[in-house]
């Protein structure tokens, strides 16, 4: 079972390395989206510092949502997905492996880039640390929750737009606690409560989302 998990993670990472544009589009979307806000709001650093948590988190939400389309779509098209569903391995484990690989490819770069972008918004080093921590804890939940939406819309026309409609409302708690933690740190209230809520959401989605995703995949792969 662990071997199968490892096999799928390594396979997806290898595929990502062979096809680098997938990683880069998500990352650049994140960078561009965040860089656009000062152009719209104005370069006033006080304002930027205030809106930074929200901007970063909304950009992360959108970036991870855009990346969802590729989570199952290619496997679905070339038949590897249906083979995954009828292997003697528990499908939830394989789905978890795919989500982990997806997070490593699309989530981790956002976490690593956030300090650099945080400097653009004149965030304090403490705020940047909390921002990284919340992104690190929150983006896996986004991948897990998003996987349900990606599985449900597999092979449908207008799948990309539909995914956003299904998934974004479910992302709201992560957005609230993620951005809230940074904001609370900036304002000196301390974001520990928010961060533990993010952790709780992660654990809950870790347990429940693979079940829902597998059920959805079985419906979509029929």
């Amino acid at each position: 079972m662990f071997k199968a998990f490892y096999t799928v993670v390594m396979r997806d990472l290898l595929l990502a390395v062979r096809n680098r544009s997938d990683i880069l589009t998500t990352v650049f979307f994140f960078i561009i989206a965040i860089s656009l806000f000062p152009l719209g709001v104005g370069p006033e650093l006080n304002t930027l510092r205030e809106i930074a948590p929200g901007v970063f988190w909304v950009a992360a939400l959108l970036a991870s949502m855009l990346a969802l389309e590729r989570l199952f779509a290619i496997d679905y098209a070339d038949g590897t997905l249906e083979q995954m569903l009828i292997t003697p391995q528990p499908a939830t484990i394989l789905v978890l492996a795919k989500v982990l690989a997806h997070w490593l490819i699309t989530g981790v770069p956002l976490v690593l880039l956030s300090p650099l972008l945080g400097l653009q918004y004149d965030l304090s080093s403490e705020a940047i640390q909390v921002l990284m921590l919340t992104l690190f804890l929150g983006t896996p939940s986004l991948s897990l929750i998003g996987a349900i939406g990606a599985a449900l819309t597999l092979g449908l026309r207008g799948g990309g737009v539909l995914v956003s409609l299904l998934v974004l409302p479910l992302y709201i708690p992560v957005l609230i606690f993620g951005a809230g933690a940074v904001e609370a740190t900036v304002s000196g209230l301390g974001g520990a409560g928010h961060i533990s809520m993010l952790g709780a959401i992660f654990l809950l989605s870790l347990v429940l989302s693979p079940l829902a995703t597998v059920a959805a995949l079985r419906v979509s792969a029929e």
């Binding site: 070339d78 590897t80 249906e82």
Partner: peptide, 14 residues
């Protein structure tokens, strides 16, 4: 059981 369908179930990049 082994099922081979219309789709080959192989990855083009591998």
């Amino acid at each position: 059981m082994l099922f081979l369908g219309h789709l080959n179930g192989i990855k083009a990049d591998l």
